[in-house]
Design a protein around this nucleic acid. Sequence first.
DNA 1: AATGAATGAGGATTCATTCAT
DNA 2: GATGAATGAATCCTCATTCAT
Lengths: 192, 192, 192, 192
Amino acid sequence: MFDKYNKVQKAVLETTLALIIEKELQATSMSLIAKRSGISTGSIYHYFESKEAIINELYKGIVSFNGLVVLEGFFTDEPIRTRLERAWENLIRVSLKYPQGFQFIEQYSFSPYIYDEVKQAAYEEGWCTPLEKVYQEAIEAKLFRPMEPKFMVQMHYGSIVYTVKASLSHYLTMDEAAIRALLDSFWKSFSI
Amino acid sequence: MFDKYNKVQKAVLETTLALIIEKELQATSMSLIAKRSGISTGSIYHYFESKEAIINELYKGIVSFNGLVVLEGFFTDEPIRTRLERAWENLIRVSLKYPQGFQFIEQYSFSPYIYDEVKQAAYEEGWCTPLEKVYQEAIEAKLFRPMEPKFMVQMHYGSIVYTVKASLSHYLTMDEAAIRALLDSFWKSFSI
Amino acid sequence: MFDKYNKVQKAVLETTLALIIEKELQATSMSLIAKRSGISTGSIYHYFESKEAIINELYKGIVSFNGLVVLEGFFTDEPIRTRLERAWENLIRVSLKYPQGFQFIEQYSFSPYIYDEVKQAAYEEGWCTPLEKVYQEAIEAKLFRPMEPKFMVQMHYGSIVYTVKASLSHYLTMDEAAIRALLDSFWKSFSI
Amino acid sequence: MFDKYNKVQKAVLETTLALIIEKELQATSMSLIAKRSGISTGSIYHYFESKEAIINELYKGIVSFNGLVVLEGFFTDEPIRTRLERAWENLIRVSLKYPQGFQFIEQYSFSPYIYDEVKQAAYEEGWCTPLEKVYQEAIEAKLFRPMEPKFMVQMHYGSIVYTVKASLSHYLTMDEAAIRALLDSFWKSFSI
DNA sequence: AATGAATGAGGATTCATTCAT
DNA sequence: GATGAATGAATCCTCATTCAT
């Protein structure tokens, strides 16, 4: 997930992510990150300006990775429904495959700890805008009822987040059939 | 929101909630709570066992309050659709009216800082189970396609959370029409 | 020397002064001050904003104390020479009696660690200006050759500082005779 | 000022001196010296044993340089007054010309950071002893009142230090006339 | 019940020094 | 000789909690 970073940075980011999910940000001290990652605090500070910088880099790294995955096979000339469902399915699969990254983004996307510029950049380079455009296309093609595309994307995104969360905490099971049913209801929820 | 607590407890809980939303948990120190609420630390510790206890009480208080609001007018013999939409609308309205409480629950419902027993109790006494039952009824009445009710509730709950969040951060506007459209699409998403 | 402070502040200031003279500012850590003074770091921070604040308070305290001593019996209508020599003698005696305070002021009066406003206040409320006025009077009374009074005060002050320093490091002895000779040469250095 | 050292050592010493005057010893880190001098920390440690060693070498270098300047034209058979005033004037001029060196010696001559052996060597090889001898000669020639020569040298040295300091901080101006007046009062202060 | 001074372990961060390249 | 990444002890400071008043 952090392949574009060097060895030390990768170790720090991975360790920090695991610790934050396991223990929460406030309980994730630099000395703990150092001990667990096997990198001395001094070295960590050689590669990252501060604890805040690590967290923000973590955020950027995960969002950027997710963006790539979600938009895989998105810019084709296949039917709208195919492309839409593929994107959401990609999101579901990457969220289930990298639960820590998923949980981190969920918990911290509204936190003041993440700099606004980082959030802004994440949003602009993310999958949100392309998806909104496809909802718009669907409306124009009379496939969907007219509605604010941003609203539609947030609704479906929220549905995925909450079912994935529930799945990760074993409150329900997200098998192939469930994913199919979810995507199906997505289409139905707005279709004319 | 914290009417069942005494004056001191209420002041502490309200101050803590405001501070956590404003500054984040880790930046919300007991001395800051004391200064802002006008209650001395000694007194705070007279009414709460620890900082964790305050946070958990906060969680319980908000969830319990939300539960009451959401289930207002729920246990009637009106049609399923009416009751369902009323419940979700109640949730939307209370979330928009008490944004701090809403945000707090969102941020901390998956945090290790909230004791599992508190989360469990919140779930059991909350609005989740009654709603699940109504979805089940709708399936049995052939109004909805067969599906795991838990799954359906999480999907719709997620949609509300994410549109409310977006509305609170001024990313989109949640006016009457939008709420109508959202509830309408909820029904359509599962209806036969 | 720090009688106007409370017990904790006094202990902290005295300990800090002793440590700085003994080991130098950079080697005087807060934990060392805490250990030696018997006050916990937490308490120290209850009474002082920061390490810098302690050092600056120390500076203020000593300068203020010295000012009182030097100007003891200064504002009388005795002859100029009497008043001048009494002031300088007071300075010599207080410097020899409180060598740590003397050394501290010497070492840190030009340090960026002491805030400019503190230095400014120290200067304005100190003994410098009154002494400069007396040198001016002496010039006007044709007792002294005309010269910039500030210059004269600095010259004599420097002489005292360096002989006291030498005395404190046992390089020479500052007995009664030496003090007499020094004051005598002060008068001669400028007298017509 | 550090011409007897090699290029690397010179760069390190000059940078360190500038930094210490600008920011104080404790804020002058090795990495800052490295960055500013363009010499890597590794190289610095190749030429100097430690940070302390740099500071002490700095002290030695400046004292030695000052000694040469002060005693320029000192060992002649000109009259005592000429030689004495020339030496002090040399000291004043070198202090005003190299204010950083002057300030450094002032701040650190009584600091535990400078090894006693370095101070001792500086004293023995410095201008102090030759000057003391001339004061002694002046006493024997009945030009000066009898007094401990060490005492006399410290008195005049202190006067210079404090007027130069005041001049460097723009508290007063040390022009030719002021220097003349100062040297004149030096002679008068002890002359019979 | 109420206060807030006192505690000290633990936080993020720095920095002199080393050493593999 | 030269480099600068790596180290980790030590720095200043915070903060949840206690307890004498």
